[in-house]
Design a protein around this nucleic acid. Sequence first.
DNA 1: ATTAATGTTCAGAA
DNA 2: TTTCTGAACATTAA
Length: 282
Amino acid sequence: MPELPEVETMVRGIRPHVEGRKLAAFKKCRCACKPLDVRPGVARIRQRIVGRTVTKVSRLAKRIVMQLDGGNALVIEPRMTGLMLLADPPDRGHLRLEWQFVTGKGSSESLYFWDRRGLGTVRLYTQAELSEELGPAKLGPDALTMTARDWRERCARTSRPIKVALLDQKLTAGIGNLYASEILHLAKIHPAHAADELQPRQLKRLHTAVQHVLTTAIAYEGSTLSDGTYRNAVSRNGRYQNEHRVYSRESQPCLTCRKIPVQRIVQAQRSTFFCPGCQPMK
DNA sequence: ATTAATGTTCAGAA
DNA sequence: TTTCTGAACATTAA
């Protein structure tokens, strides 16, 4: 599920162990799974990154970016079930990739990419490719940097339901299916409300709700759902799932009004959860 | 035992 | 141009 808060948690978790370190090896783990989408291939990437030092680790929307000295950047996209781990994967069978770092002694320290479904991707880009492939033409502003004015301007450009618009990474980057429902519930906006018909006060509430939900979810190290897939960099569960108001709570009473059952609808082939009482269509 | 659903993204079609 | 559909994959729930 990694959305913005989960990817941010991964970045913060691996950063102290990765930044400033030199790569000693990069290899495919031997697992029985179909190969990941790695471009330009594990061997080609190995040639270009071993011996290089990681100068910076950062988050770009829902991706992890490792900048290397020499100008290349490694971009990891966890998609549905990918994890960046320093230790203790949920199982050995879905370990996909290993980066070994130079330690100075005989011991080795490694960073792993684990991915149960295997939909994750890895790319090695030059700086030019990075700004081409993941620049403003492809990705909207990060959800955490969106201003109230950004929300006004960008929502005015589409008549799609606001829930669907929140998932559009060109409109705003980082929000996924889970947090879209939680944000709209806090903002008291019906998920089917047309984005370009939101009133100024609703847009103001949307801006505040995005900030609150995402920063709180980061503070709680993301959401570990019932399938237990998501973990932080040292394989501990997130805690924001305990704060969910509507997500995956169909038919249970809304935790805000404590009365009306949470309703599940399908929009753009994705589940949306909301409280018809707290989020009127207005 | 099939079938549907699961957090994401993108190519290609409508 | 914008929006919708299906596919990529592995696993679990129905």
